[in-house]
Design a protein around this nucleic acid. Structure first.
Lengths: 161, 161
DNA sequence: ATAACTAAGTCAATATGGCTGACCTAAATA
DNA sequence: TATTTAGGTCAGCCATATTGACTTAGTTAT
């Protein structure tokens, strides 16, 4: 049976090949986030601050509820990080049309930090994309997308409508 | 100049496209690890335990030093997690040829947990690979590999020699 | 108009997974 | 013999997350 599997399983479905992908995800994600992490440390922020700044930059006037739904953390967890960002004037809160809600917006200072952080990752990706053909790039994006849970694919799509 | 950029920059080098990749990495990695995370919680373990079990399973008789070099955490951080795994008999330590070193090996119990955890991720990947053509798969692996820092590419290569 | 629901905020306690620094033992090596 | 290396440990600290209980104010449905 083991031999039969060897004959019938396509090369890319071998467990060894799949384990390679598990490791690639681990190494790639860690190194992809290490650049921003180092910069954040200097200003006593962490990855959590980056995420908030990133998504507030992505969607101007995002509400707390939307942010929580993207980040999938608790209100209490977000609160600590967000309060720091507001106190240090990276983000401003304003009351929304529905007066129960609040709209988050990056300040100039916030945009500058967002830009510094994103630039690190953007440049890294640019370097890779420049040396890759379009088929590889499209495969990369497609398979990453497929790794997202269905319920979260919708959230990703909404961010990129 | 902005117009000139629009004309000269290939579509896949647009900032918008690159930001999509940043988000794909965030969503994909989180959802990729959520399966094992849920299982680990039931037995009061965390992601750190998973990593240790994974790499001990990957490389029988791995030493503490090698493990630290892969995980890139401190000895003290590893210690807490590893001691639990040894105490609960998922891993056994034995003295290496160089008597200063120790070889880590999964017990039967350890293999079973490793298998349960990995199966979740392997099945997820299998499903994706079955619906993808080989070019896409190869692009996915190539670009993930390129996201790894050069010094860590060597470590990845050694794991998969 | 009132009841129910929703968005946001807060207090407190807890867990996990990292970190630094200091210090130790035993074995290998120069 | 002196130094380096592999591993271990104690103590304290920090960041990021959790759960649960509770409040306020605004919106919506009956």
């Amino acid at each position: 049976m083991a031999d039969l599997n060897k004959l019938l399983t396509p090369l890319f479905l071998n467990e060894k090949e799949i384990r390679k992908i598990i490791e690639l995800m681990f190494f790639a994600y860690r190194d992809f986030t290490s650049g921003p992490d180092a910069l954040l440390e200097k200003i006593d922020f962490g990855r959590a601050h980056h995420r908030v700044i990133y998504f507030v930059g992505k969607k101007e006037k995002i509400t707390i509820k939307e942010l929580l739904s993207i980040l999938q953390i608790t209100k209490q967890s977000l609160s600590r990080v967000l309060n720091q960002l507001v106190k240090e004037k990276y983000i401003i809160l304003s009351i929304g049309e529905d007066k129960r809600t609040k709209n988050l917006t990056l300040t100039k200072k916030g945009h500058e930090l967002e830009n510094e952080l994103s630039t690190i990752q953007i440049e890294k990706i640019k370097k890779i994309l420049k040396d890759s053909d379009e088929d590889n790039i499209s495969g990369f994006k497609t398979l990453l997308y497929e790794m997202i849970d269905d319920k979260n694919k919708i959230k990703f799509d909404k961010l990129n409508y």
